[in-house]
C-alpha cells in the first residue's frame, strides 16, 4: 500500500501540491485525473523520488520512502513514461531488458534477451521489432515497448504516466486494454495519471481527482458518475462551464 500524507511541493511561487492525502491500496489500480498543470506528474514523481516534496510523508508498506534503500525501492517499481522515454541508442530488446542486464540481479545477455522477446510478444509486438531502434517505430509501438520495459522485471508496482497521450482512439483502446490485462494478471498495484476518460474507465479500480494541488474526490470508479462533486462532474463530462476555470 502506498500512502501520501500532506504532501506539498512548490516551484518558486507556484504551489503545485498543497497537502495531498492519498492511499493506493495494494493490488488495486488507482487512476489520478485532473487538468493539465494540476501536478499529476509531480505527484507521481514525488513517490518515485524523482522530485523531492517540500513537506509531507510518503510511505510504501508503512516505511518512509526517503529512508528506503534506493535501489531496492526502485526495483519494486516499473514505469511507463508519457513519451515512452526509450533510449535512442539502444535496440528495442535492450531497452526492454535494461534493468535485467544491470544491478545486483544481473542476468546473462541471452536470458535477458529471451525475457525481453517474451515481454514484447506479451504487448503485441512481433519478433521483427526486437532488433530495431526506437526511432524506427511508430508512436503506438513505442508505447508498447515502454510497457514491455515497465513489466520486464515483473515489478510489484507499476506507474503509467499519460499512457494514451498522442495515440489515436483505437491505439488508445489497445493500450488501455493491455494495461488492464497486465495489471490484473501480474496482481500489481498500479497508479495511472491521465486526463483521458476512456483510460479511466478501462484501467481504474479507484479514481482520485487532483485539483488546485489537493485531492478533491476519491472513490471507486463505479461511484464516479454518481458523485456529487461539481469539480469531478465538470471534468469527467468535459464541460466548459463549472467551478473549474477554463480560458477561452
Amino acid at each position: 500500500m502506498i500512502e501520501l500524507s500532506r504532501v506539498a511541493k512548490s516551484f518558486g511561487k507556484n504551489h503545485v501540491l498543497r497537502g495531498v492525502n492519498l492511499t493506493i491500496p495494494r493490488g488495486q489500480s488507482m487512476v489520478v485525473i485532473g487538468g493539465s498543470g494540476t501536478g499529476k506528474s509531480v505527484l507521481l514523481k514525488s513517490i518515485l523520488g524523482l522530485v523531492t516534496p517540500d513537506s509531507g510523508r510518503i510511505t510504501l508498506e508503512g516505511a518512509d520512502v526517503r529512508e528506503a534503500n534506493r535501489d531496492a525501492f526502485l526495483a519494486r517499481f516499473g514505469m511507463l513514461f508519457q513519451g515512452g522515454a526509450l533510449f535512442d541508442s539502444l535496440k528495442v530488446w535492450e531497452n526492454v531488458a535494461f534493468r535485467l542486464m544491470r544491478g545486483a540481479t544481473k542476468l546473462p545477455k541471452d536470458e535477458a534477451r529471451a525475457i525481453a522477446i517474451e515481454k514484447l510478444r506479451r504487448v503485441g509486438l512481433k519478433p521483427e521489432t526486437v532488433d530495431m531502434f526506437p526511432g524506427e517505430l511508430s508512436g503506438g509501438m513505442q508505447k508498447r515497448v515502454g510497457l514491455a520495459r515497465a513489466i520486464a522485471a515483473e515489478p510489484e508496482i507499476i506507474f503509467f504516466d499519460e499512457p494514451t497521450t498522442g495515440l489515436d482512439p483505437i491505439m488508445s483502446g489497445v493500450i488501455n486494454a493491455l494495461i488492464r490485462e497486465i495489471v490484473t494478471e501480474m496482481g500489481a498495484t498500479a497508479m495511472t495519471i491521465t486526463h483521458d476518460m476512456s483510460s479511466v474507465r478501462a484501467i481504474a479500480d479507484r479514481v482520485a481527482m487532483l485539483h488546485d494541488g489537493l485531492i478533491r474526490w476519491t472513490g471507486l470508479v463505479s461511484d464516479m458518475d454518481q458523485a456529487d462533486d461539481p469539480y469531478l462532474q465538470q471534468f469527467i463530462h468535459g464541460r466548459a462551464d463549472g467551478p473549474i476555470e477554463s480560458v477561452r
Binding site: 518515485l48 523520488g49 517499481f77 513514461f81 513519451g83 522515454a85 544491470r102 520495459r149
Partner: peptide, 16 residues
Amino acid sequence: TMKVTEQIDALTTLST
C-alpha cells in the same frame, strides 16, 4: 534531449 524526453528519469527508475 534525454532530459527533455524523460530518458534521464527513466534511467533513475531503472535503478541506474
